[in-house]
């Protein structure tokens, strides 16, 4: 009942639209509404097969693109992987087998305690201490000859022997 009413209403609406259309465009209303276009014979029968071929071609292009990206990335990935392996081969054994205390000892040997520093200062005579302070900024480097000359003029052979034994 409701569906019939709906269909009836729709057809009334359509008729009203048609009447309105005739009023707006009487010349156009006279022209027979027909499809003036044609297609080659069997066009729609073949279309699906042709489309399928195109889709398959697209799929292959997409696969090739994917393959290309992997090919480009391969050497970079290989290089990164070998770096990682080398790092692991060096880092893990060093961390596992090297005694922690030895590492700490090595680090500490580069630094002087306050007492040691004081004894070194005490052993220096006044002149050489001031000479060091004055020339420190100007002469940052000196040759081996200058060093030997300085040591031989300021230290006795026994003192040198004692220092090297330490």
């Amino acid at each position: 009942m409701f569906l019939n009413l709906l269909i009836k209403n729709e057809s009334i609406d359509k008729n009203a639209t048609m009447e309105e259309f005739k009023k707006i465009a009487p010349e156009l209303s006279k022209i027979k509404k027909e499809n003036a276009f044609g297609t080659p014979p069997h066009y729609f029968d073949d279309f699906s097969a042709r489309l399928q071929m195109k889709i398959e071609a697209e799929k292959q292009v997409a696969e090739k693109k994917e393959f290309k990206i992997i090919n480009i990335l391969k050497p970079a990935l290989g290089l990164a992987a070998s770096f990682a392996i080398i790092f692991m081969l060096v880092y893990i054994p060093v961390k596992t087998f090297m005694p922690q205390q030895a590492v700490v000892g090595n680090l500490a040997s580069n630094e002087y305690s306050d007492n040691e520093f004081e004894t070194i200062l005490e052993e220096l005579d006044e002149n050489s201490f001031f000479a060091l302070l004055e020339n420190g900024d100007e002469e940052e480097s000196f040759s081996d000859e200058e060093l030997i000359a300085y040591v031989s003029s300021n230290f006795s052979s026994y003192e040198i022997f004692e220092y090297t034994e330490k």
Partner: peptide, 28 residues
């Protein structure tokens, strides 16, 4: 839907060969 879409496209681009191209692109 191939026929309905074909006629819809054909009325916009008008030529059959162009319609064929556009219809294939549409389904792709």
């Amino acid at each position: 839907y191939q026929e309905r879409l074909y006629w819809h496209i054909r009325k916009i681009v008008l030529n059959h060969d162009d319609t064929d191209d556009v219809l294939q692109n549409t389904f792709l």
